[in-house]
Design a protein around this nucleic acid. Sequence first.
RNA 1: GCCCCGGUGGUGGAAUUGGUAGACACGCAGGACUUAAAAUCCUGUGUCUUCACGGACGUACGGGUUCAAGUCCCGUCUGGGGUACCA
Length: 999
Amino acid sequence: MEYNFKEIENNWQAYWAKHKTFAAKDGGDKPKYYVLDMFPYPSGAGLHVGHPLGYIASDIVARYKRHKGFNVLHPMGYDSFGLPAEQYAIQTGQHPKITTEQNIARYREQLDKIGFSFDWDREVRTSDPEYYKWTQWIFIQIFNSWYNKTTDKAENISSLIAEFETNGNAKVNACSEESVQSFTAAQWKAFSEKEQSDILMDYRLAYLGVAYVNWCPALGTVLANDEIKDGVSERGGHPVERKLMKQWSMRISAYAQRLLDGLDTLDWTDSLKEAQRNWIGRSEGTSLKFKIQNSKESIEVFTTRPDTVFGVSFVTLAPEHELVASLTTTENKATVEAYVIQAKNRSERERQADINKITGVFTGSYVEHPFTGKQVPIWIGDYVLAGYGTGAVMAVPAHDSRDYSFAKHFGLPVLEVVQAPSPSERAGGEVYDAKEGKLINSDFLNGLDVKDAVKKAIAEIEAKGLGKGKVNFRLRDAVFGRQRYWGEPIPIYYKNDIPYALNENELPLVLPEVDKYLPTEGGEPPLARASSSWKYEGKYDYEHSTMPGWAGSSWYFLRYMDPKNTTAFVGKQLADYWQNVDLYIGGSEHATGHLLYVRFWTKFLKDLGYIGVDEPAKKLINQGMIQGRSNFVYRVIFSFGASTPRGTDITGSYDLATNYFNEHPIFISKSLMDLYKKRDPIAKRIVDKRIDELNQKAKTAVGNYPGSMSILELFSELNVDVNIVNNDILDIEAFKSWRADFKNAEFILEDGKYICGVEVEKMSKSKYNVVTPDDIAEKFGSDTLRLYEMFLGPLEQSKPWNTNGITGVHGFLKKLWKLAQQTIEADKERLLAPSPSEKAGDEVASKGELKTLHKTIKKITEDIERFSFNTSISNFMICVNELTDAKCNKRAILEPLLICLSPYAPHITEELWKQLGHIESISTVAFPEFNEAYLVDDNVNYPVSFNGKVKFTLELAATLTVPEVEAIVRANENTLKFLDGKEPKKVIVVHKKIVNMVV
RNA sequence: GCCCCGGUGGUGGAAUUGGUAGACACGCAGGACUUAAAAUCCUGUGUCUUCACGGACGUACGGGUUCAAGUCCCGUCUGGGGUACCA
């Protein structure tokens, strides 16, 4: 019987779907286990081989846990709101809903082919109104909440209103806007509804606020910090600028400390936790007021180094600082205003690009030093960020490199106040960051260590009422509104300019139809194009922004628990049963976006008592990226026929031309080269064109050889054969300067020469290097695909895709198939055997076979538990190799092996399981238990080493004690040979491990 | 600049607590079967040296700890990722 993977895989996929083999039960005696993949955005390109990597790993764990007796929840869905569908809609007029549905259908087809054990009855789609109804519902809960710092959790806004009505806001300890004014209960009651609404807005966790946002003109929308890379939008790479706008935001900053603390409880990688810590960016310091000379006002700064206060030689304000205008003296007015305007117009990218360019202006005003009373000049500089701290810094140029550069540039004094512990610390530069050392020139701080000085300085600042110890976070509130069509409508309407949330029973607020998916001529978001009937109660405008991409994904793990619930986003009972994700697998690109937001929403929902856990996922693994690897690139050189006549008059030109080509090599991709070698006419035309281009350039660059001939003309004149040779040494530097975008180029080394470059990069449609899983499944089958993706290397590691080793794993499956067929054959014969004794004798597995099996069970179990899938594949290979060598045909060996393998290669194992006569799916069978007894060896192979170098091995009985082993080894003739008559200084025997002699 | 993770044959990668470095697979070389190819099977394959037995070297580099180091410590080089005028 042949291994017909196509038929087997189709049959079993149909069987699983029909029998709902992998449906999770909501409850029961079994312990629960929740395995989740980050759900995909269904793009038009479909899945490529990189996508399933994580899914295969999680599927192995899910299937394994089922074998181990867990009730496994392993769902899949789609993050189906997003930009690409919308942009496609803008271009074609096709409703994004339709493209999204088509893409989902394609994804589903591809996913099904790989044989995943998803519980498809629980599928969610974020763009489905039945789903986003609850996204909107959660938004309303956040809108109706404020953060009580005293209880350290979110509470319903009604408790805040009650407090306002009885005591005003004097005693309220909340996370709110800094600008909020204090008022009494009487004042509160006297405020108009609009005024009350505005004040509450400063406290709400989802709020409408004016803030600097990242505005992307090309996309016509605002972006969150994590949606920007290198100053341009992550999607599309469009420039981003800073703009003051009224926007819906989420007060995630209220959760900064808890998001930070929670990391310690999670089993996530250190690098990912570290990325979140940096993003949250907690820093401890103090605020400090500098009184402005001749004014009642003062400038408040934030500093982490109050100990260096005596080193302050100027104060710098951000160009956006509110005091800038009032501080500026008349003679400086013109320059300051020009500078502020210039700073405002610089885009984020420009700001990042000339990070070393120092700019700033003097205001003409001074502050008084809080301790010395000396006058300190006030400057404006765009190295100070308006959004962080107070937007003002006290500059200590001696101990801060940025302050130093600024001081140096503008000729401001540098006052040293910390002495480095050793002079060498300062040898490298003139700035000393002063993390340790003794304070000097600092009045009451003199002689103290930095640590003590910080404490004393804070105490002094607090005692004098100049400021107080403070914790600052880098984490900024998340902008929540997007001026796009294809997203969840924000469930808000405006009545008399006051925003109101919809009632729960009015949800979902369904996305309205529009004539075009573009902003209006007036610059309003696309939802403003909805028909005039799309109004609350027929007259009030809805909010026209939609939610960002991360809204739907911030709670989807909860919906899978109870996907059909029409009365709650998740039932409390089911939320309590499934709790949170036991294993979450996805890409590390979500480190500071999705993974932070989903933690935030989880904590919020916990605060309000809807769920019992405050972290979404206990364990998280980042699968590495599978990179495309297709563009082999060869350098093209020209060879010259031996018969070429070389007159003296043209030798100079010849050299000139040759040099030119050496300096300007041509590179050609491997596929093109292959075609060219086969004399493909199109390939020839392309290559000729490339040469022609170079020729044109050469004409202008080297125009001065005889008769102004082009290089090709010159060559043809000389009767030169132009050949393309691809085994030349590749000039890596030339290659890199030719294609600076080949950032990840790899070079193939052969005989010490680089012969070609290989581009390694992210797979994408635009780069024509996409390999789809369908291609592989078609040729080798899904089981091979699954095994091969796991065999490539550790899950977390990024690796280029190449199919070089795929025959290895495919061969393994064929070998297994053969082994199993032998067993099935032998088993039939045994059944038909005339006498029972013959049958029994044949059926008992040998000691060696049992040892192979149990060794494998042990390793596979350990490998899965530590997510080391690549090593388990090689263990399976070893096992099948050993059993094949032993000509094993025992059911007692094959069956447990098939169960072990079934999480990895589910189709072939199901088929063989059936052929062995079983009716139930193999997926329900208990995982084999490994028995230590079979692994105990009678003998131990002791490596005997001399001074740590192994010279020979000695097989000894395992029962021997350490002294007995030593005695035998000492007496061994080999030992005597190596000792050469000398007495060993020391003999170390590690029981059942190694013997080492020191001579 | 700062933070995190790496660096092992021709290649992908093993070595779980310090105990025979290079498992497993690819590739390559040789052989068997075949008219031939594919498929399959067998043998070899870290480097240098030797006819061979064997010997020497070897986990980026330089030191150290240890009977013993790919693994632990110190320093250097180097690759990747994250982040950045965050005071």
